[in-house]
Structure formats: structure tokens, C-alpha cells
């Protein structure tokens, strides 16, 4: 999916700002920048992805240079700097998972959705990503839904159920 040229309002809602305030409060008063990782996640959750403009809004709110916030957003894998489908599915294919069906699970999802890794279904519903170890290898195959929800033991039947749930 290409970056659409419609402009998204980069401003954050009062609820999002309140959540960011809660993160800022965890750190010493002169270390607001420590909250940038959490703040970018809050912004991503609200907007679906992080545009340069949204990143700048977060940076300004925390009193840091937009470039510094952008560096963070581009360093960590789970920030989406481009629009993704409504459901981003990340399948772990690292070796421990691959020994217990991780690659099979990825292939199964690819087949069901008709897309490869780093692609989005034409209806904009699903984006598929290949993941690295999620620290849950005993539950292989494992998948993340929209970064935050982990699904364990994803055999074909469970994958079918998950995809059906994603409305």
C-alpha cells in the first residue's frame, strides 16, 4: 500500500494526551523524552500508523526535536511508518518456532489471504509481516495481532477462527 496523499489530522485526542501524561509521570521531571516510545505507540494506536506529522506532534508535546522522535520511530520494528491494514498480523518464523510449525503457519495465512509478507489485502483489511522471536517459542506457532495481542498455538483451525473474528 502506498502512502495516500490525503492528509490525516496529525493532532492527538485529549484521551491520547492524557495517556501520554501518565507515561511522562513515570520518569524524572527532566527526562520527559523517556516517554517517547510509549507516546509513539499511543499515537500509532489512535492514527493506525505514524506519519511524519504525527511524530512531530508527539515530539513537540514531549519537548524534543522531531528528528529525535523520528529516529526512535524508525529504529524500532513495531512502529508503522506507512499505513497498514486494519489488522496487522505478524507471524514468528525464527528457528525455535520454525521447528514447531511457524513456517507452516505463515504459509497457511499467506494462502488464506492471498498475500505475501509485507503485503496488504486489496480491501485494506490485513497486512502480513514476518516476525522475529517474540519470547513465546514454547507456544509455537505464535502470531501477534496489531502488535499487542499475542495468539498462541496457531494451528490451521485457530488461524481460521482468528481470521473470521477480524471483522
Amino acid at each position: 500500500m502506498n502512502t495516500p496523499n490525503i492528509t490525516v489530522n496529525p493532532e492527538l485526542s485529549p484521551e491520547a494526551l492524557k495517556k501520554i501524561d501518565r507515561e511522562v509521570a513515570k520518569y524524572p521531571a527532566d527526562q520527559k523524552q523517556s516517554a517517547v516510545m510509549a507516546a509513539l505507540v499511543i499515537a500509532q494506536d489512535e492514527k493506525g500508523w505514524l506519519s511524519k506529522e504525527t511524530i512531530a506532534v508527539v515530539a513537540n508535546y514531549l519537548g524534543m526535536a522531531p528528528m529525535a522522535a523520528y529516529e526512535v520511530a524508525s529504529f524500532y520494528n513495531m512502529y508503522d511508518l506507512h499505513p497498514v491494514g486494519k489488522y496487522k498480523l505478524t507471524v514468528c518464523t525464527n528457528l525455535p518456532c520454525a521447528l514447531s510449525g511457524g513456517v507452516h503457519a505463515a504459509d497457511y495465512v499467506k494462502g488464506k489471504l492471498g498475500i505475501d509478507f509485507n503485503e496488504t489485502t486489496p480491501d485494506g483489511k490485513f497486512t502480513l509481516k514476518e516476525g522475529e522471536c517474540m519470547g513465546a517459542c514454547g507456544d509455537a506457532p505464535v502470531m501477534l495481532v496489531n502488535n499487542k495481542r499475542m495468539c498462541s498455538f496457531m494451528l490451521p483451525e485457530q488461524i481460521d477462527k482468528l481470521l473470521a473474528e477480524c471483522k
Binding site: K26, M37, C133
Partner: peptide, 10 residues
């Protein structure tokens, strides 16, 4: 004590 989360970087 507080929690800080990562976001995908080994």
C-alpha cells in the same frame, strides 16, 4: 518502580 516497554528491537 515503573514499567517501560520496548517496541521490537533485539
Amino acid at each position: 518502580l515503573f514499567a517501560h516497554h520496548g517496541w521490537g528491537a533485539y
